[in-house]
Structures are given as C-alpha cells and as structure tokens.
C-alpha cells in the first residue's frame, strides 16, 4: 500500500493533486462528471475586489504542446465569491480549498485577504502576483522582489490562514523573488504561473489573441516549471506547490522530486476533464513500479 498523502502548512492532503486556479472554475462543472472529493484540494478561480469581465475575444490560441490564454481574470468579485461561490463549493467539496486572490494594488490584495480570512472552507490563501494578462497588476508585482515582500507582509497582517505567494516565471531570478516572499512571512510558494507568449495569424497578419500577448501553459512549459521549482525549493525552507504543464502521474513524481510538496494541474484539465482522477488513480501504481512507498518522502530529494 503506497502512501500518497502529503501536507501543506499543517493542512493534510489525501494526495498531492490540486486543480490549478482558473482551470476548474468553482468546481461545479467538474462535480457533474466525477467525484471531486477525491482531489487533494482545489485552487479556485482567481478573485479580485470588483467583478471583472476580462479581456476581449479571442482569448485562446493553440500552440505546440500547449496553449495561450488571455482571459484577464474574469470573475464575479470578492463579495459574490464569498456569499455564493465558496458556500456552493462547500456543499459539494468537503475539504479545505485554496482561495486565489489577485489585485491591482496592495490595498486590493489586503481587502480580499481580509474578507477571505473569515471563510471557513478556505485552507490556504494563494496570492497571485503573477497574472500576465492584466495591466498594472499581477505580474507587475511578481517581478519585483520589493513589491512581492510588500504585498506578502500586508496580507499576512490581516489573515491567520497560511499565505502562499504564486510566482511568475517571467523573471530573471525566480529564487530571489521566492526568498523575498519567505522573508516577508509567506507560508509557502506556488509556481509557476503562465509564461508570457504570443502567436500571429500569418493570413490576417495580426496577433491571434486580442490582447496581443497571453499566458503560455501546457506540457511545453513543464521543463521550465520543474527547473524553477527545483531552484526555489533549494532557496527557501517553506513548502512549494509545483505547477506548469503537469499531465500525468510521472510528471507529479518528477515535480515532487524537484521540491514540490503538492502539485497543481492546470491546462490539462481543459483538454482532458478527467485528467485529475486519472492521475490520482495512476499515482500509487507508478510509485510502486519505481519503489516509492511514501510519496512525501521524495520531496526535494534531488541534489
């Protein structure tokens, strides 16, 4: 019997598999096609203070082994997320969830974190300082170590829940940013958000995406994500949630060996809605095949 349980800041997870923010909505659609309670946790769609429509169409582009999105944080705003979406999710998912927060100012992050702090089914607050699809927010914070520290410190002051900082890969030195978050009091690091990418339609001679650029995700970015998880795990003592192109149980194990205590599955949910149950089903089998009896024992074991 392989033990695939893991832990994030005292939160026990039945397994390390967590659907990533923005690829799982608030769980309702997926709950109609499988028992979502098999998941380790769920990172819900990113929330901002006010409701947002997001960017213009088209927002999606095909890439080799991946995709670009420029949704631009479409969400109903923090009040409705707290009054409707999270209570509805609690009815169908009986474990703590990860609430993802985005913002355009330190005040906005603080506003949302303070509100989320009182929601019982939120186990971890994930601070998205890495969205590539909005101007003046997200990634603008995540690429500056001082700004990351400032947001982290401010959010930590208003919540008792563990705070994880979700980092952008669009930086020169990811470890420096992670250390800055840790020193400011972060309880953990989530990485990576999408990579800034672009496609051009050669017939119309215009970018495929209305917003010109967008976030590149999918299996193509897995090696980059793995490298960055490895670098960050080496640089900090707090837990790391690894994500970026994970598509199978083998990828999960690889990501955990690099230093992830748990993983998030993003783009893969969109092209195969049954991918999370498949990975959870396959994990013990793959562990057994390569002689792993306790999955959490392999976290960060690569020198």
């Amino acid at each position: 019997m392989v033990d695939i349980t893991t832990e994030l800041s005292g939160l026990k997870l039945d397994n390390p598999v967590i659907p990533a923010s923005g690829t799982f909505g608030y769980g309702q659609e997926f709950s109609k096609i499988y028992d979502i309670n098999i998941l380790g946790s769920i990172a819900v769609k990113g929330t901002t203070k006010n409701a947002r429509f997001g960017n213009e169409q088209p927002r999606i582009a095909e890439c080799t082994s991946g995709m670009i999105n420029s949704v631009g944080l479409q969400n109903p705003g923090i009040e409705r997320v707290i009054s409707e979406e999270l209570p509805e999710l609690q009815k169908i998912f009986h474990k703590p969830v990860i609430a993802n927060i985005s913002g355009f100012s330190v005040e906005e992050y603080v506003y949302c974190a303070e509100k989320i702090n009182n929601v019982p089914n939120v186990g971890i607050i994930e601070i998205n300082v890495s969205c590539p699809n909005v101007h003046g927010g997200g990634m603008a914070f995540g690429s500056d170590p001082q700004r990351v520290a400032e947001v982290t410190r401010a959010v930590k002051e208003v919540t008792r829940k563990p705070v994880y900082i979700k980092l952008t890969p669009n930086v020169t030195d990811i470890a420096e940013i992670a250390v800055s978050a840790e020193n400011a009091g972060a309880d953990g690091i989530s990485l990576i958000n999408t990579m800034l990418g672009m496609r051009i339609d050669i017939k119309t001679r215009r970018p495929v995406i209305a917003n010109k650029m967008g976030g590149f995700s999918g299996p193509a970015i897995f090696p980059v994500a793995l490298r960055m998880v490895y670098q960050v795990h080496k640089a900090v003592k707090i837990p790391v949630i690894g994500m970026g192109g994970i598509s199978c149980a083998e990828d999960v194990i690889e990501m955990m060996m690099a230093g992830a205590s748990a993983v998030q599955i993003g783009a893969a949910n969109l092209v195969d809605p049954f991918i999370c149950p498949k990975i959870i089903h396959d994990l013990p089998e793959v562990c057994e095949r390569i002689g792993i009896h306790k999955l959490s024992g392999i976290i960060g074991t690569i020198d």
Partner: peptide, 17 residues
C-alpha cells in the same frame, strides 16, 4: 462561434457580454 479551450464552461476563454 468562438475560440475555446475547454468547451465545457471552466476556462472563461469564450466569454462574451
């Protein structure tokens, strides 16, 4: 018609007003 990623309502890739 729209460019879609998931096709089942979770990614918000094809939202319109």
């Amino acid at each position: 018609e729209a460019r879609m990623a998931c096709g089942f309502g979770v990614c918000m890739g094809c939202s319109i007003r």
